[in-house]
């Protein structure tokens, strides 16, 4: 049985109001049967200094990635990860994390590759929970292991590879990196020299919508109207069209992917996780520099 939804008025306007919960809702549901809370942060020590009571840690770096190949875990990996946290296919998972849920939405996207049905995001994430003075604990939950089935990861639908992007050129692309990365002034994000690429710029035709524009000051997603202004009026997306979002390694774009997919209801939106670290180093792929989207 899925856990009851958060009937928050703000969420009602979204295409899929069921994918978000508020901090107040989560506080009231901390011990609700069938609910599993997962924290996914960029700073992998944050969970240890205090987390939402009952929350388990999920580490984007070690839990979700294949240790050798640049790819995600397989069905067995997910089965192990979820079984250890007492998750079953019927569980309602609520994800939250630091940096306006940047890494929480990334984890959600990876989990969705396996098709787990009910995964929700805590609107505003870790910072909002703390800012509101809600309870934290350093106690790690002890749960009985469950048996989560070995599912097949399905990369079709919400994941795009380089060849998919090449075939998609001319259609809608959203570049969620900083303006300096988009124009090609820098080949990596400020402070992330290791995640650079050999060339700077963006994929031809991509509209620039830095990911953080989708959130309010408190880290919550903007209202439906605010998101429409950003992606439809601003970036020129047409409801219903195929969209691919990308950033540097696919984490910031997961945050935008979530907004497009669930909050604005784009049916076909994919996240290109190879992103600029692949495109900007690939041989002979087209690149545009400067502030204009350009064309192929």
């Amino acid at each position: 049985m899925p856990v009851a939804l958060d009937n928050n008025e703000k969420f009602d306007d979204y295409a899929h109001p069921e994918v978000l919960v508020s901090t107040a809702w989560l506080e009231a549901n901390l011990t609700t049967e069938g609910l599993v809370i997962l924290e996914s942060d960029e700073d992998v020590l944050l969970y240890e200094i205090g987390h939402i009571p009952g929350a388990h840690k999920i580490d984007w770096h070690t839990d979700l990635n294949d240790p050798v190949i640049r790819d995600y875990i397989d069905g067995e990996g997910l089965s192990r990860l979820f079984s250890e946290r007492g998750i079953t296919p019927d569980s309602t998972i609520v994800l939250y994390g630091d940096k306006s849920n940047w890494w929480a939405t990334y984890a959600l996207w990876v989990i969705k590759l396996f098709g787990h049905a009910d995964v929700r995001i805590l609107d505003g994430g870790r910072d909002k929970w703390i800012a509101e003075g809600r309870a934290l604990t350093t106690e790690k939950p002890v749960v009985a292991h469950s048996t989560y089935p070995v599912l097949t990861r399905n990369d079709e639908g919400i994941r795009a590879f380089k060849d998919d992007v090449l075939a998609h050129l001319g259609k809608a692309l959203i570049d969620v990196r900083s303006p300096e990365e988009y124009s090609g002034e820098r080949t990596h994000m400020p402070a992330y020299p290791e995640e650079g690429a050999l060339r700077g710029g963006h994929i031809p035709g991509a509209a620039s919508v830095p990911w953080a524009r989708a959130v309010n000051e408190d880290g919550t997603y903007k209202s439906r109207t605010g998101l429409e202004e950003l992606y439809l009026d601003g970036a020129g997306l047409v409801p219903g069209e195929d969209v691919i979002a990308y950033c540097r390694i696919g984490e910031r774009s997961s945050h935008s992917w979530f907004a497009l997919k669930y909050l604005l209801g784009f049916e076909s939106v994919r996240n290109y996780d190879g992103s600029w670290t692949e495109w900007g180093s690939a041989v002979r792929v087209p690149i545009v520099t400067g502030q204009a989207p350009g064309s192929i």
Partner: peptide, 9 residues
């Protein structure tokens, strides 16, 4: 900042 434990470490 306290909320940046890896960096503090």
């Amino acid at each position: 900042p306290e909320q940046a434990p890896t960096t503090r470490g």
